[in-house]
Design a protein around this nucleic acid. Sequence first.
DNA 1: GTGAAAGCGCTAACAG
DNA 2: CTGTTAGCGCTTTCAC
Lengths: 356, 356
Amino acid sequence: MRFDEYNYFNIYLIYKGGENMTSTIKDVARLAGVSISTVSRVINNSKPVSPEIRQKVMKVIEEINYKPNEIARSLVTKKSSLIGIIVTDIGNSYVAEMVRGIEEIAKMYNYDIILCSTYSDKETECKNIQLLKRKQVEGIILISDIINDRIDELIKEYDNPFVYLNRLYHQTKYSTVSIDNYNAAYEMTKYLISLGHMNIAYLTAKEKQLKELTTIETEKLEGYKKAVREELYEEIIHFSKGKNIKSGYNAANEIIARDNITAIFTSCDDLAIGAINYLYDNNINVPHQISVAGYGDIGTASILRPKLTTIDEPFYDIGAVAIRRIIKELKGEKVDFDEITLPFRIQRRSSCVEIK
Amino acid sequence: MRFDEYNYFNIYLIYKGGENMTSTIKDVARLAGVSISTVSRVINNSKPVSPEIRQKVMKVIEEINYKPNEIARSLVTKKSSLIGIIVTDIGNSYVAEMVRGIEEIAKMYNYDIILCSTYSDKETECKNIQLLKRKQVEGIILISDIINDRIDELIKEYDNPFVYLNRLYHQTKYSTVSIDNYNAAYEMTKYLISLGHMNIAYLTAKEKQLKELTTIETEKLEGYKKAVREELYEEIIHFSKGKNIKSGYNAANEIIARDNITAIFTSCDDLAIGAINYLYDNNINVPHQISVAGYGDIGTASILRPKLTTIDEPFYDIGAVAIRRIIKELKGEKVDFDEITLPFRIQRRSSCVEIK
DNA sequence: GTGAAAGCGCTAACAG
DNA sequence: CTGTTAGCGCTTTCAC
């Protein structure tokens, strides 16, 4: 450090010492003896700057530990590099997994994420969209599991890249990403049939408000039906009160009242886990007395004993693809299809066995 | 809508139609025929405005669906109403639970959160702190499980409210919140002793880098030791390679090689789950042959069969208290203690039974 | 009670 | 290559 620089630095310290310590581009400019535009240029590498000056500026930046204020930058560039992500509840492992995918990819492209929870409340969902708009997020991913008739209006106002990961519906208005639920359910049922099961109960839940099955649940159910019909087996369909573990627990009781059932296939892992718990608590052996298959392959599925046979929905990838799509759109790249379908896998584990 | 207003609105639409549709405070001012300061006043309720004008302004805001730009506001107020939260991995259920607590409380006070993951990488942790600083977050909560000698310097530079939720260390430099690990482990061990267990193995893991126990793990271990010593029982301490389910699985094998063991107490739930899985896979009945107790009470603990006896660490509350503390500091309220201790509970469930 | 004007920290023409 | 200048959209003195 030569004397003049050392001196500059001291002056700077004296100047800044009293008040707010954060230094601005002006400080850097003054200390480096250049204009703020030049500083801006070296920070952003936006235009050529002579090596010596660049050096000098960088040194000052280093010395006073200058960090550009992204808020100010955003204001002028109109790019916040923020993506809003609205979830039902980060406590659900599949949601966490999706967020993981989103966050990781977003970071790769220098976007940050603002996280909001709705706990499946419609009002909160709407509020969050508006709030994120005010925060100038460049895109929104909405992970929802409710019906929200105000989405249309809100998104129209918002007018930015948007991906709708609604677990109830497939709609063509917005970009979405999911697996082929019809075929997934079909294949799982076929698998159970291949194990010799002839009386396979399907357990699902109606949506509370509508009191009917949602688009996606209908697709799964149809997949199940198709497989069963092909064999001319009986369709055995049960509806639980909800989709959580407890609902599965309670439903299992009713299902096994029919004593010919040898397998239960549920529309989500939690229902399967609930069912397995019920059977365990009532000394009914899974899989030897009853096989149980789930849907989703949440983390718990492979921890359980017996390990849960289920359909692997690639939650991480769903998140990753969703954010990828938004970033593409933001970059002005052409984005073709709006309904992206990802591959699934049947996870054959120990909760389902061949019938004897 | 009277004619003149209607007319204004049309002019506005014509004006805005071509370009960027988002309206600004200027638009509102022009359409309402007032100055932007007045608009600002009605938006923020910062100074008295005559009822008629307020009406008029509100009407225009409604009509053109004006939403204030928070970025611009932040720039002048120097308040981003953003809290940064850096986590190891949102995929860990306890982390998700903490984030849940943070997010929910933050929203109550009109703060939003920016989420960053580190996957326990030191460099990423440092980068994220700096990045959040640039984004002008008003506070940071760091949920970490690594040693990071650069934290000091980084936080000094950052110079804003900060809570360090490091699962390895208790340090007095920063605010932190946790449970009394020493007494929690002590009480759990006492509980096992009360069930008649005399040969209780304690399973924990050394930190990889240090190859020794971290502060927090040492506290737990000391709690266990104290309880065992009080009875003059033998201390049976095992170290696994890591803290995940797999490590627990592998360690269980070694532990039961000593055939007098009747109970295993692990320093985290994942180790316990791994151990239970191992015992299940090897036809050793839990709890009747061996009782297993965990630490943490993660979601899976009560789903497992047998249900896991464990120590309930209030993860949600830990997050909530952490953010609460930051908000208090931001409001200039006095914040007294820096190391907040929350209560724990021994969750007595079916994985531990009285010895016969 | 209201408006004019300055400025938050930065980028981006525009000259030179 | 570098500096000057005009804003980005908003809040906040300071006059009136």
